[in-house]
Simulated assay, not measured.
Amino acid sequence: MFDNLDFSKMGAMFEEAQKHAKTMEEEAANKEFTAKSGGGMVKVTMNGKGQVVDIHIDPSLLEDKESLQILLISSINDASAMVEENKKLAATQMLSRLGGFGHQN
């Protein structure tokens, strides 16, 4: 099972993986994901950490609390889904980098 794995290099490989993970986390934090609902009447922007960094609400919605709530929930959920998809992509990329453990160079 571990025939081709050089255990003497594992420490360096894990250290490299940790550095790469930290870099990817920093890059993700700087990304922004914006979701719109109600034809753009509500826009929610989140950073890669899933924190809401901006909300735009069309002034016409301020008179209609129920519609505003529905559109806000929709936008927040959509932006959150974008953040989660980005996290999954980053994890997949990280795992593909680690996939070379069994290879000899």
Results as ranks from 00 to 15, higher is better:
Met1Pro: 10
Phe7Trp: 11
Ser8Tyr: 02
Ser8Arg: 07
Met10Tyr: 07
Glu15His: 10
Glu16Lys: 14
Ala17Leu: 09
Ala17Ser: 10
Lys19Arg: 14
Lys19Gln: 14
His20Met: 10
His20Arg: 12
His20Ala: 13
Ala21Met: 10
Lys22Trp: 00
Lys22Ser: 14
Lys22Pro: 08
Met24Ile: 09
Glu25Pro: 03
Glu27Ile: 10
Ala29Pro: 06
Asn30Ser: 12
Lys31His: 11
Glu32Cys: 02
Glu32Gly: 04
Glu32Asp: 06
Phe33Thr: 07
Phe33Arg: 02
Thr34Val: 11
Lys36Arg: 14
Gly39Val: 00
Met41His: 11
Val42His: 02
Lys43Asn: 12
Val44Ser: 02
Val44Arg: 01
Met46His: 05
Gln51Phe: 00
Val52Pro: 08
Val53His: 06
Asp54Met: 06
His56Leu: 11
Ile57Tyr: 00
Asp58Pro: 04
Ser60Trp: 01
Leu61Thr: 04
Leu62Ala: 07
Glu63Gly: 07
Glu63Leu: 09
Glu66Leu: 12
Ser67Asp: 02
Leu68Ile: 04
Gln69Asn: 14
Gln69Met: 05
Gln69Ala: 11
Leu72Glu: 07
Leu72Pro: 08
Ser74Gln: 13
Asp78Pro: 00
Ser80Ile: 01
Ser80Leu: 10
Ser80Lys: 08
Met82Gln: 15
Val83Phe: 06
Glu84Ala: 12
Glu85Tyr: 04
Glu85Thr: 15
Glu85Ser: 14
Lys87Asn: 06
Lys87Ser: 10
Ala90Asp: 04
Ala90Ile: 11
Thr92Ile: 04
Thr92Ala: 15
Gln93Trp: 01
Leu95Gly: 09
Arg97Met: 11
Leu98Arg: 08
Leu98Trp: 01
Leu98Phe: 05
Leu98Asn: 06
Gly99Trp: 02
Gly100Ala: 12
Gly102Tyr: 02
His103Glu: 11
Gln104Pro: 04
Gln104Ala: 13
Asn105Glu: 10
Asn105His: 13
